[in-house]
């Protein structure tokens, strides 16, 4: 497997996790006959629960970060406006258009009063769409105007050389900044190396600086620890 392919897999793994978690439930109802109301009776003392030493089952420990907080976090992290960072057809905010797929409800529109219990089949696509659009928007703004988030890397460069100390330091600074902004923590050295390696040629293609910046932002923004809490 090529380096590039491995990197893409690493980027998409959280989305795959979302897809695997999707499912649905079923309900039953009954219609019994009637009998008179019961009367209180004398009862023996209650039974004591026998306390076993068995390890209890582990409940679901992760919570799905749904539409509104996800959009708010991405927007805040990238200093963008939630309503404009990702637009469907250039008009409708993605977080509204994909609200149910992202885990929100739709009480006034479709009468969906309760949000989906689990991520659906299209949830990974909607998450990728939202984060990728926001990252692309941030990179565009930083490349063409005063940089706000990606302040160190030369975004006009046709490619980035991770083995050049100056270039690498700039890339690490921006990757660390994205990590802090999107995940509220510093990256480990392994995580940082993986992100820097996204700039290396793979399968005969060398990403531009803007492509590297967008992919780095996307990789961090779709990490499991940004989609669950």
């Amino acid at each position: 497997m090529s380096t590039h392919a491995r990197n893409v897999l690493a980027v998409l793994a959280p989305s795959a996790l979302l897809a695997l978690l999707c499912g649905c439930g079923a309900e039953e109802s009954f219609l019994p006959p009637v009998l008179p109301r019961s009367t209180p009776v004398e009862l023996p003392p209650p039974h004591e629960v026998a306390c076993e030493t068995a390890t209890p089952p582990t409940p679901e420990t992760l919570i799905w970060k749904r539409a509104d907080p996800l959009a708010a976090d991405v927007a805040l992290a990238l200093s963008l406006e939630p309503d404009t960072m990702c637009l469907e057809l250039g008009v409708l905010p993605c977080v509204e258009a994909e609200h149910v797929a992202l885990g929100g409800s739709d009480p006034l529109g479709t009468g969906l009063y309760t949000p989906p219990a689990r991520p659906g089949l299209t949830t990974p696509n909607a998450v990728d769409r939202l984060v990728l659009a926001a990252c692309a928007e941030r990179v565009d703004r930083d490349a063409t105007g005063p940089a706000v988030v990606l302040t160190e890397t030369d975004l006009a460069a046709a490619s980035l050389d991770p083995d050049d100390a100056t270039t690498r330091a700039a890339m690490e600074a921006d990757a660390r900044s994205l990590h802090r902004r999107l995940l509220a923590r510093d990256p480990s050295s392994d995580e940082l190396t993986l992100l820097i390696d996204l700039a290396r040629p793979a399968d005969g293609l060398t990403p531009t600086a803007r492509e590297w910046a967008t992919l780095t932002c996307f990789a961090i923004g779709t990490r499991t620890d940004n989609l669950f809490f």
């Binding site: 919570i63 509104d68 907080p69 976090d73 805040l76 902004r181 509220a184 809490f229």
Partner: peptide
């Protein structure tokens, strides 16, 4: 810290920032 993150997301609508942590 996990509880803080959950509080922020559920009741403040966003996760705590790096500086807040």
């Amino acid at each position: 810290e996990r509880a803080l993150r959950r509080v922020a997301i559920v009741y403040c609508g966003r996760q705590p920032t790096y500086d807040e942590l």
